[in-house]
């Protein structure tokens, strides 16, 4: 499936739809709390959805590597982790831009912001760890074990801790609701763009990761030729 072309075209069409209809669709007024900036739901929020999916694929390949140590499994794990981290970084930056106009400052120490930053640092350590080991087998094995820990650290930092305290993110009052997005802010029209946007951005991430994997396999072949 990864070599086929249809899902790459699907990704392009979904994002084309997101980037045109996303500007055009009628958004709920919500007593003018967010005005037009609610359209960031189609760009900022899918970064986090995409990051979560890509990092899950990464840990999937890491576990696969531990059961069956092949270079393919290791390349996939590291490529998906890299793309997932890039998505997370873009999520942090776009969030800071949005927060600057919504909450008055780009960084207000919101629990969700802090948690996401910690999660990103944990993933950056994964690449530092991999980069510091020269032996390929050791690098892959230690990397895979670390990746399992890194993935499970996403749950306290992104899903649990922000729910336990007050958050500026919508829906984050005390332990109630989801601290990331408030589903009630979206109406049926917005959902028609939001879910295709999540799928489109995620497929784009998968495409980039697959190119990265194929590149590192080629480099590996050349090194051992």
């Amino acid at each position: 499936m990864i070599r086929q072309r249809w899902w790459k075209i699907l990704s392009f069409l979904l994002l084309l739809y997101t980037c045109t209809y996303g500007f055009y669709v009628k958004v709920p007024r919500l007593d003018d709390r967010m005005q037009e900036s609610i359209r960031n739901f189609f760009f900022h929020v899918p970064m986090w959805f995409g990051m979560m999916i890509l990092l899950f694929v990464s840990v999937w390949y890491s576990v696969k590597y531990l059961r069956n140590p092949t270079i393919q499994n290791d390349s996939n794990a590291s490529a998906f982790a890299a793309t997932g981290t890039v998505f997370g970084m873009l999520g942090l930056i776009t969030g800071a831009i949005w927060a600057n106009y919504q909450w008055g400052s780009p960084w207000s120490g919101d629990p969700k912001q802090n948690g996401a930053a910690i999660a990103m640092l944990i993933y950056l350590a994964y690449f530092v760890l991999r980069g510091s080991i020269t032996d390929d087998v050791k690098k892959a094995r230690i990397g895979a074990v670390y990746n399992v820990f890194a993935f499970f650290m996403l749950f306290p930092t992104l899903w649990i801790l922000p729910r336990l305290t007050e958050s500026l993110h919508p829906g984050g009052e005390g332990s109630e609701g989801n601290p990331g997005i408030n589903g009630q802010d979206m109406d049926a029209h917005m959902r028609m763009v939001f879910y295709p946007a999540v799928l489109g951005w995620t497929l784009l991430g998968v495409w980039i990761s697959s190119i990265k994997t194929r590149y590192s396999l080629l480099a590996y072949q050349k090194m051992n030729a």
Partner: peptide, 27 residues
């Protein structure tokens, strides 16, 4: 003038996908 922004975003999107497709072909 929101559609000016839309045109810019769509142009960037098309450019990025063309670039990605060309990298894919090279690989």
């Amino acid at each position: 003038k929101i559609f000016v922004v839309m045109a810019v975003v769509v142009t960037i999107l098309i450019g990025l996908f063309l670039y990605l497709a060309s990298v894919d072909r090279k690989i």
